[in-house]
Design a protein around this nucleic acid. Structure first.
Length: 439
DNA sequence: CTCGCGCTGGGTGACAAATC
DNA sequence: GATTTGTCACCCAGCGCGAG
């Protein structure tokens, strides 16, 4: 209330002046009966605001109503600012602040329904493990064991928390659950009824079953026949159909890079970055994220070493060494050394993907953008992702008659041939068909 | 001061690829 | 094949900053 589109705290707001985003204009003239108002009246209107509050007897009781007057505003903290739409509102908490909130982890707090979903999930998770007797450090270590899954788990657990509270259940009841499968099954069915996506249902199931496992339940108690039946539909929906896909020709990229090799000076920083990364990806079949977090160093005889970590599957370090190829114009070593040569003597120690124009390291998004610019420039049809460089380069190798062993070694896939056949070997079956057609 | 734009980081769907 | 988890792409709101 009493805000404008610039300073509002919620998506819905009532403005002082005319504004088409606002729910209404003039707070004092509308009813507050069905609202949980966050009031920030100008000083002259404080008394009128209080009067109206008394008169209207706001439904949610005074406890939930927030009245911000200047002195209060000055010490407002995150707990006081309620978000009405946690999915869309952005969370801005410093790490320190977050810890503080965890310690408070209050079961007594009245308004935990208003926390952002992810926060809520994290709080639930930490609370449950804490109740089981794990120390804060132990819990943190559990979380650190995930690289990416945690980000999702906390979201889905937040979603579950919303559901649990909406059933009118309390958090303590979660600890007394005897049949976790039942809880998950009902939750997923509810999601299905609400038209949640297949992926969302699967993720919710994953997160919840992880939570119950960490609570100490055995897998059989969590994953029973009923749940398996329920999961069949979302699972089927997520399965990737086997299809024959066209892939662009790797030579297209090589020709473009070869072409640009003579005109390195004219390349903008971002184009240059794109070419260097695309070359590395093409020759090493590393993923973009792996290249992005790599440490690059120079070795004798014009060799370059790329050290990075593979989180996917291996959870281990990888070192790739590039040696000069016959044609230096399409060789990653030469592109890397000229990339490094662009920087001044005193800046040699800077991280590889340092951008001079921005005076900072290129973000992951920027490297992705750079590679896309290069892909666009060599006329690769739109719609291909950066990983298609992997597909394209592997497809070429296979086409050239590389053996299974060579491919497996080069691609570093655990399930080697299987993964390559499913995702990367984009050779169409045209040749086989042509041969079949021969009489 | 306002407007527009780029950057950020949370959130999510789709896909990839591992383990169970 | 089922399940779990990492990667890619995109969206969105908020913010800072420079131009006007």
């Amino acid at each position: 209330m009493f805000s404008n589109r610039r300073n509002r705290k919620f998506r819905r707001f009532v403005s002082l002046s005319q504004d088409k985003w606002a729910v209404a204009q003039d707070c004092l003239s509308i009813s507050w009966q069905l609202e949980v108002p966050y009031l920030h009246p100008p000083i002259p209107l404080i008394q009128q605001t209080l009067n109206k509050l008394m008169k209207e007897k706001v439904q949610s009781s005074y406890d939930h109503t927030i009245l911000a007057i200047p002195t209060v505003v000055a010490c407002t903290n995150e707990d006081d600012i309620k978000t009405d739409s946690p999915r869309r509102k952005r969370r801005r908490l410093s790490p320190g602040r977050e810890d503080e909130e965890v310690k408070e982890a209050p079961t007594t707090r009245k308004n935990d329904g208003c926390l952002a979903r992810g926060n809520r999930g994290e709080e639930l998770f930490r609370w449950v493990l804490n109740q089981r007797g794990l120390t804060d450090t132990a819990i943190q270590n559990v979380i650190n064991g995930w690289h990416e899954a945690w980000r999702r788990h906390r979201q889905r657990l937040g979603q579950f928390d919303e559901y649990w509270i909406s059933l009118g259940r309390r958090r303590e009841e979660l600890l007394k659950v005897e049949d976790p499968e039942l809880v998950i099954a009902n939750f997923i069915s509810q999601l299905e009824a609400e038209d949640a996506t297949n992926a969302n249902q699967a993720n919710c199931r994953s997160a919840l079953s992880t939570l119950f496992q960490l609570q100490g339940f055995k897998k059989e108690k969590i994953n029973g026949v009923a749940l398996q039946q329920i999961m069949k539909k979302p699972q089927a929906g997520m399965r990737k159909p086997i299809k024959e896909e066209q892939i662009w020709n790797y030579d297209q990229l090589l020709k473009y890079i070869k072409n640009k090799s003579d005109q390195k000076v004219q390349l903008s920083e971002i184009e240059f970055l794109g070419i260097v990364i695309a070359t590395i990806m093409g020759y090493s079949t590393l993923r973009l994220i792996e290249v992005h977090r790599a440490i690059v160093s120079k070795l004798p005889k014009g060799c370059w070493q790329i050290k990075t970590a593979m989180f996917k599957g291996h959870d281990t370090g990888v070192t790739v060494i590039f040696r000069p190829l016959d044609d230096l114009s399409i060789c990653p070593t030469q592109w890397l050394s000229s990339w490094m040569n662009r920087r001044k003597k005193k800046d040699e120690k800077l991280p590889v993907w340092w951008l001079y124009s921005k005076n900072r390291v290129a973000s992951y998004e920027e490297t992705s953008k750079a590679v896309h610019i290069v892909m666009k420039a060599c006329k690769i049809p739109t719609g291909y992702t950066v990983t298609s460089i992997r597909s394209s380069s592997m497809t070429k190798s296979i086409d050239q008659g590389a053996t299974k062993t060579e491919i497996n070694r080069a691609t570093r896939h655990r399930k080697g041939s299987q993964a390559v056949a499913n995702h990367y070997d984009k050779n169409l079956n045209d040749k086989i068909r042509t041969r079949l057609a021969k009489l």
